[in-house]
Nucleic acid binder design. Structure first.
Lengths: 215, 215
DNA sequence: GTCTATAATCAGATAGAC
DNA sequence: GTCTATCTGATTATAGAC
């Protein structure tokens, strides 16, 4: 009795379809990716694809579930809360939003082809945001972050917006076609600059000491 | 010898098509809005629509041009630069992004159905961002804004991201279906909170004194 | 300018042989 | 599990009468 959306068959083909779909969704958007293209890229026939996923919606949902698990794991896994942990989690989030960037392109459009996504997306969003709120509260209590409670919610939302739509911004306004590691660094720095004005000296020092990874 | 993308016919029908298209684009996204739906909503036949716009791309471009003119007018018109003017212009921008919110849903997807939009969108983006940069520099010189030069660019980009994707955020994460004036206020407050840490006392007082409009 | 066809294409999805 | 063949419906766009 698994928790997955797509019910029946397992095996390597199914996994390959999901992986291929994710790649193509990211490249062209889920709406402009046809089942035909996915099947072809996965090296199977279209009819076969429909054996594994009885509709495109179920396939989209299966891809989403991978993101969901990764996101949950990232933000609940290890409740340790040193500044370094926050740093790593933020980086993990950036890599995740990049790996599943099609989810951040046009949610309304995505929900149009996969209506069952609406509820699950909202639930995930609430879960994650609650967790981040706790993290911010923890930082504040520890005296690492100095921010008024009413400003805290604004910061949280701005944080969320920047951390979610940095890719869309780079694509639309900077003409970036392929995101490279340096773009990840860029988005990362943007989010850090949101925090910067509220950071205590201690926290600032800790963050600056974290080395930039070279991938 | 007009500057518009769509060349030939003028008149009320053409204008009505553009207006109708904009409304439907905003409602369902430009990609999921069919020429049939536009024609029907405009009360004309589909063949007639294709008389006025020889392709869907030209229609998209015509709608974009209205946005472009409004945006240019908003950010170049009246180079006066009192804090109050900045305030009004920011509000104007929020109303504009709302009135043409389909442009901020999925730029890559939009460019897929209207490739000629790519260049014009990027050019507009550069123009606007340059203007905002000047505004920030002006505020800094006037001593109203206190921010280090290297932080200034980060602020500018975050500003741009929040001011562009606040709608997408509300739709995706708050489940907002119809944007009301209070949502405009919300987005407005989000952007102001980006500035807040860098505001001098004088500027802060001026902004707070600007009344909230009740539409 | 506006309409009535209708073409051309392509999407998601199904039936049934292997 | 995988393939071939096919259906159905929708979408952009055109030709030509009024």
């Amino acid at each position: 009795m698994g928790k997955s959306a797509a019910s029946s068959p397992r095996g390597p083909t199914r996994a390959r379809i999901i992986e291929t779909a994710c790649v193509l969704f990211n490249r062209n958007g889920a709406e402009r990716t046809t089942t035909r293209a996915i099947a072809e890229a996965a090296g199977i026939n279209e009819g076969n694809l429909y054996y594994h996923f009885r509709s495109k919606e179920l396939l989209v949902l299966a891809v989403f579930e991978r993101f969901e698990h990764a996101a949950d794991a990232l933000l609940t896994d290890g409740s340790s809360s040193t500044p370094f942990d926050y740093h790593l989690r933020l980086r993990g989030w950036f890599e995740l939003t990049w790996a599943y960037r099609f989810l951040f392109r046009d949610v309304a459009g995505l929900e149009a082809i996969a209506p069952s996504l609406t509820v699950r997306l909202r639930r995930l969003s609430v879960r994650l945001q609650r967790r981040v709120r706790t993290m911010i509260a923890g930082l504040t209590e520890a005296g690492l972050l100095r921010i008024a409670p009413e400003e805290s919610d604004r910061l949280l939302d701005n944080l969320w917006i920047v951390a979610s739509y940095w890719i869309a911004f780079l694509v639309a306004h900077r003409g970036v076609k392929q995101i490279a590691p340096r773009h990840l660094e860029w988005g990362f720095a943007q989010v850090r600059s949101l925090f910067a004005p509220y950071l205590g000296a201690e926290m600032r020092g800790l963050l600056d000491s974290v080395p930039v990874r070279d991938e």
